[in-house]
Design a protein around this nucleic acid. Structure first.
Lengths: 117, 117
DNA sequence: ACATATCACTCGGATTCCGATATATCGGAG
DNA sequence: CTCCGATATATCGGAATCCGAGTGATATGT
């Protein structure tokens, strides 16, 4: 019996943006904040409180882990975080959940009445 | 203070599902719970606490309002809620926000797959 | 020298979540 | 008619989450 990804769903906006920021490559905390803002064109901004609360929760759930990498020439204060395998599955599942929600939303808004007269 | 739709964004999962349930037609509280469960194929279930907290917040923000309709032959206990014009704009804006998030998500996930090792 | 940016993270108040609970009516089975 | 599950309203209060304001330090630009 494995971890059920659906247990965490639906992901909060904060968690989703953190996972998306980490999906491309591992990042440090400050980088996650910047990447989330960049990916959302400035529409979504994470403060440090939200970031670390979520990071803690995501690490406890085995979705994110810390990596020990320390590339030369970089700021030594940086601590890197990355998605685990489970994390990628959770993200993929959340994305398809959102796709289904949007499909339903469009159907409802475009007047596709399921109503049978 | 102006009613800027973006001030409420991102909508919580609960608020989004309530707005989607009301997008088709006005509904009473109990009906909103059932419609949200139906639209999400049982994946998302609202409890009464979440429903009325959100309904209160949405009404205070001018996104949802109560309607006085009382069709004959229906349970007289029912109280109907419906979207306002602002509510429709907020919902539409949230949907396009989610579309942009999903577009970004796909780009990022596609990028990792094609990444050269 | 001073301001701004990068980098870490904690703190605590406000907000939100959400199941348990309370109350009452409806509709059908027995 | 009585019982009972479903329908219907809504509150309560503890847990979880949000999130800006701090704290502390180094780096970089003017």
């Amino acid at each position: 019996m494995k971890h059920e990804p659906s247990r965490l769903a639906p992901l909060s906006a904060a968690s989703l943006h953190i996972l998306l920021a980490l999906a491309g490559d591992e990042l440090h905390g400050y980088g996650i904040m910047q990447e989330a803002a960049r990916q959302s064109a400035g529409k979504y901004k994470l403060g440090p409180g939200t970031l670390y609360d979520n990071l803690k929760k995501l690490m406890a759930a085995g979705i994110v882990e810390e990596s020990r990498r320390q590339p030369a020439g970089e700021d030594p204060r940086r601590r890197y975080y990355r998605l685990t395998g489970l994390g990628r599955r959770v993200l993929a599942e959340e994305i398809s959940r959102l796709e289904r929600v949007l499909r339903e939303a469009k159907a409802v808004l475009q007047g596709t009445r399921t109503k049978i007269a």
